[in-house]
Amino acid sequence: MPNFRDTGHLFRFAGIFVAAVLIFLAIRGWLVPHTFGQYGHYRGAALTEIAAKPVHFAGHQTCETCHSDIAEKKTAGKHVSVNCEACHGPLASHADDPSIQPAKLNTAQLCGQCHEASAAKPKGFPQVETESHANGVACETCHQAHSPAIAAGGAQ
């Protein structure tokens, strides 16, 4: 083969090239996280990491496993579809360990968050001017939060 004399240097060069590719692949394999590309152009393990974060709101199904009496009481009133933690706040800690007692709610302030009268609120939503209506008296003095009456007026 007269066209291919003195091919030794080509093989040496090819050897260096192959070695460089192998080193590149090794470094890449070491640097790129193992689950990268599992589902797409991102680290697949991130999904399980995000899903493992702690839960703070236990969910009303969890509440109702113990407090079925309250759930029963709610079915009769207008607050039937208001979840427990909408008013009581996040209580997964109490659900995990019932000895942790949640703080008592201040109904004079809490109820107004939803029911304080404002022209901006939807017209059909029950609203009241708390200052002239109750003058600082806690709402639960007259109203039962778990089952406000459906009848006109709302008071028990």
Partner: peptide, 12 residues
């Protein structure tokens, strides 16, 4: 479970 905002929304 549902999201925290959905769980806490009183009016659905």
């Amino acid at each position: 479970l549902t999201t925290a905002c959905c769980e806490a929304c009183p009016t659905g």
